[in-house]
Amino acid sequence: MSNEKQVKDNYTAKLRVKSGILFAVCVLLTVICLLPIYMLIINATRAHVDIQTQVSFLPGSSLIDNINELSTNPNFKTFDALTGFKNSLIIAGCSTFLSVFFSSLTAYGLYVYDFKIKGAAYTFILAVMMVPMQVTSVGFLQFMIKLGLNDSYIPLIVPTIAAPAIVFFMRQYLQSSLSLSIIEAARIDGCGEFRTFISIAIPMMKPAIAVQAIFAFVANWNNFYQPSMILISRKAEQLTIPMMINALKSNDKIADYGVIYYAIALSILPLIIAYICLSKFIIAGVALGGVKE
């Protein structure tokens, strides 16, 4: 009897030790994840001279000076955070709305109706899901220059109407949650097809729309490649936040580390806040996207 108990105790003790070790590993990884961001915030509050002489893990007292320096020094003219946020918000907001709305529409059309090229259309969407942006960008830019659309937001916003990955996700979701008999019922009640989509399908797709909207927004907000490709003239009033950060880091004239750290911190602040609020959604969304089976 006591032998059995000992075995059991041994087993629990072993598990406890293992859990402890794994906890330590997790803490270590968390530190690796957070330390760069922590150092960023700390250094944003310190003066240039202090940063260069001594590393500190405690905040300094120069935050106000750095804020003033960023807004007054002509060297930082290209980094106008408010304009950057506004531009990024316009591009990401419009793109998110268009991509989510039209992807839902396409997925709904592919799921609800029976028509000749339905299978072929869906296969096509699956096939092009993997085609990377970089492959078409040479022809894309040349075409846009021909149309005179470079230095405009149109090539950044309108193409998002066609988002194959979101269509795929939405169709998967419809398949699992929307029964065709509801559509039939709406028809019998005399509801038009488009109205059925707006007032019945969209409300039922809300969870999927929320997840996809968050991801589309973050992706478009962080997008550096396309804006820096299309906005050839680099007009100050058109720059997005990632482009401003790139300009800031490429500028050899700027040597004030405190201000640079502050500018970088400012650029990621909205994302961090949004992430803290929405982390549950985001984690669940990644998990959903992972199950492709």
Binding site: T106, G109, L110, F115, G139, F143, A162
Partner: peptide
């Protein structure tokens, strides 16, 4: 069905397929 998937394919052809051919 055609009407609902039309915008996707129009935009895809204009902004992806043609640029690919153009490349």
């Amino acid at each position: 069905g055609y009407f609902f998937i039309l915008p996707f394919f129009l935009v895809y052809c204009f902004f992806q397929i043609w640029p690919l051919i153009n490349t």
